[in-house]
Amino acid sequence: MNSVERIFEPVPETTDRLSNSDTWESGGRLWPSGVRQTLTCCRVVDETHDVKSFEFRTSEGLPVRFEPGQFMTVSANVQGQSVERCYTISSAPTRPYLLSITVKRVPGGTMSNWLHENMQPGSQLAAYGPSGTFTPTAAPAAKSLYLSAGSGVTPLMSMTRAGIDLGLDRDVAFVHSARTPADIVFREELQRLAKLSPRLHLFFVCEGVGQEQDWAGATGRLSLELLSRWLPDYAEREVFTCGPAPYMSAVREMLREGGHDPARYHQESFDISAGVAPEPAEAKSEVAQETFTVKLSRSSKTFTINASETVLVAARKNGVAIPSSCSQGMCGTCKTMVLQGSVDMKHNGGIREREVQKGFRLLCCSRPTSDLVLEL
């Protein structure tokens, strides 16, 4: 096991509820992803004209364990509606008394606008524990390549901050794409960190110069030609990518064309703009679909569901409000007990095996294989 693996050990499974007696170890609180608690905002930082970082402490002011690159789901009441969204933790686990999320204000974005307009020091926000597998422990490597665009910089920033805090002196090439120089999130801090760590190689590429007419960096979009010029050894590096879905798709294709091994490519897979996990291709092609009945044990509401639909999709179609966020089987927000029946669940780490054994399923990535009774 190398130094990165030892320092960034995966957070172990813990109890489903927090208690003073069994949720503490030397590294801090073991906060299960399915448990919600209240965070208190202690600072708001303007990163760019439309991006803010919100820094929080736990209600007890105690440390929290997480891996760099993980995310948490935050919950708020916005205009009378419960809204939940996933945001990557941008702070480093090496500073466990502080949790920060960095949020771009999106036109029409319910949660992002609410946070920008309402969150201030002293404000409180409900959140579920850290989750996700987009972390350095997924693939420790001698040389890494971080590729990000826009606010997708956040998980890679957490990884970079942690590595430098620990003095790992890792060979990391960090390539960030932005609309203009003024839109580069963490620009000054990244430049400072690059001075602290000579093996952190920093590259920016902007679509245009905006108001910074003396911009000396690259302009346009990231291309294989530009990447090859900056990093002739890119094919030897473990790649971690995060950004808008079209960006990640373009980057993956670019690397494929350049001969990079797809097995060494990792990307953040949740997309808060996504509605639900996509239907399997084979299910879409079938003309006739089997249907089942879903019954909710608490409300006695009943509805039918197509075999190709996720339970979350069918519930929404029938007016059943179920908390959800990532819709990709990662955050655990839609975790529900299946009292009767069976489903085909294809998750991305948002549920633990022992929870599955108890009968819990993630409705966003579960498709029925029989009639169901849910604890709702």
Rank of each mutant, 00 (worst) to 15 (best):
C206Q: 06
R57M: 10
W215G: 08
G167Y: 05
G163T: 15
A139P: 01
V44L: 06
T102M: 10
R256S: 14
R85L: 08
W230Y: 12
P244F: 09
K284T: 06
C364Y: 08
V251M: 15
Q124T: 15
L30G: 08
R36T: 15
R264I: 00
T40D: 00
M157A: 04
T291K: 13
L168C: 03
L99K: 02
T102F: 12
F292E: 03
I164V: 09
Q124A: 04
R17E: 13
V356W: 11
G129Y: 13
Q37F: 10
V103T: 04
F56W: 02
S342Q: 13
A283N: 00
D371G: 06
T302E: 15
A281F: 10
E47K: 09
S19Y: 00
R17W: 11
R161P: 02
C331H: 09
K301Y: 04
A216I: 06
N348I: 00
V35D: 11
S177K: 02
Q81R: 15
L339K: 14
G208E: 13
F54P: 01
H266T: 01
E375F: 08
G109V: 06
T333D: 03
F66P: 02
S300D: 14
P140G: 12
L30Y: 10
V185A: 15
L224A: 07
Q267K: 11
K301F: 10
E375G: 03
I164S: 06
Y265I: 00
A250E: 12
L202K: 09
T14Q: 11
L18F: 14
L147V: 15
P130V: 05
N113G: 12
E375K: 09
S249M: 08
P262V: 09
V338S: 00
G217A: 09
E375P: 01
A218I: 05
A178C: 08
E60D: 13
G210M: 02
R367A: 03
G332E: 09
V153C: 01
V74T: 15
A149R: 06
D214M: 07
C365H: 04
T94A: 12
T48F: 13
L98G: 00
E207K: 04
Q120F: 03
L156I: 03
S158E: 02
E286P: 02
P140D: 10
G61L: 06
S324K: 02
Q79N: 14
K195E: 14
L200N: 05
R36C: 13
K317Y: 01
S297Q: 13
M248F: 08
D171R: 08
R221I: 07
H266M: 00
A314T: 08
L374R: 07
E25N: 15
R298Y: 03
G122R: 01
P93C: 05
L190F: 13
G109Q: 05
T291C: 07
G34L: 13
V356K: 15
P10I: 08
Q211R: 14
S148E: 03
A245Q: 09
L231G: 04
